[in-house]
Simulated scan of single mutants.
Amino acid sequence: MQIVHSHLILDACCVLNFCASGQLLAILKSIPVQVAVTQVVREQELKTLQRLESEENDGATQFEAAIAQSLLITVDFESEEEAESFVNYAAILGDGESATGAIAVNREWAIATDDKRAISFFRKETPQIQVLSTLEIVKHWSEEAGVDSPTLRYVLNLIRVKARYMAPKSDPLRSWWETAMK
């Protein structure tokens, strides 16, 4: 996985998937550029992850550790253009996707999202911005770390069950997902 931008900004769905995997820190360490989340996503996801804590999920702890270790930085709007883009995108997308996209587009950063509408929108409107998915990043991590098949199957199953994620039929890595889950 080659990232052609200086930063990768994660949308909420990817944060949840990586936290559900139990491997957030390892996944972030495998990404070859600085990884960020917006303040909007951080606030939303921390609340979601804290609610999940009662289900023996250490996602909130991993999330905060990632921030403390600077594996994940939090960014907010720094210009009128970013704020204006956020408002414009929010007419079409959710707040997390809009904030993530507004910052990515204005700073020329890559985006990681699994939201179909966001993927379609950003690929059409801003083709110069690289859009990555949970599967691309998890596959990269598994290859970089030399993760064995049973561990990969376990991690993907955690993502499927805890984050309620299923690889879309249209995803080019769907067959990789299905093979790894066997």
Rank of each mutant, 00 (worst) to 15 (best):
L52G: 04
G96F: 01
N17A: 09
A65E: 15
A83M: 11
G22M: 14
A36V: 03
R117N: 09
I31S: 07
I73F: 00
S54M: 01
Q34V: 02
A110T: 01
V41M: 08
R123W: 14
L52D: 06
A112C: 09
V37E: 09
F121S: 12
F121R: 13
A12H: 04
K124M: 05
L25N: 07
T126P: 00
E80L: 14
T61Y: 15
I9V: 13
V87N: 10
E43D: 06
F121P: 03
G59V: 04
R107P: 00
K47T: 12
A60K: 01
T38S: 14
S21K: 09
I103W: 06
L28E: 09
A26D: 08
K29D: 11
Q50C: 07
I31V: 15
Y89Q: 12
A102H: 04
Q69L: 13
Q128I: 01
L10Q: 09
V87A: 11
F63M: 04
H7M: 01
S98E: 12
G96S: 07
L71P: 05
L71Q: 10
L8M: 11
C19H: 13
K116P: 05
A104V: 01
G96M: 05
Q34S: 10
E82Y: 08
A90M: 11
A112W: 01
Q39E: 05
L8W: 04
G22K: 14
K124D: 07
E45W: 01
S21V: 11
E78A: 15
S30M: 09
S98W: 04
V37W: 03
E64H: 11
E84N: 11
L71N: 09
A36F: 02
Q34G: 02
K47L: 08
K47G: 12
F86Q: 01
A12Y: 02
N17G: 10
Q44T: 15
D58E: 07
E53V: 03
V15K: 02
Q62N: 03
V35I: 03
I31N: 10
A66E: 00
L72V: 13
S79V: 14
K116Q: 15
L10V: 13
V35M: 03
L8Y: 03
L93S: 09
L10H: 06
Q62C: 00
A91N: 03
I111P: 04
S54E: 06
C14N: 13
I103Q: 10
D95P: 02
Q39H: 05
V87I: 12
E56T: 08
A68E: 11
I67F: 00
E45N: 05
T126F: 14
T74L: 14
L25Q: 13
T61I: 15
A20M: 15
S79Q: 11
I27A: 01
A99E: 04
D115A: 03
S85H: 13
D58P: 02
H7I: 05
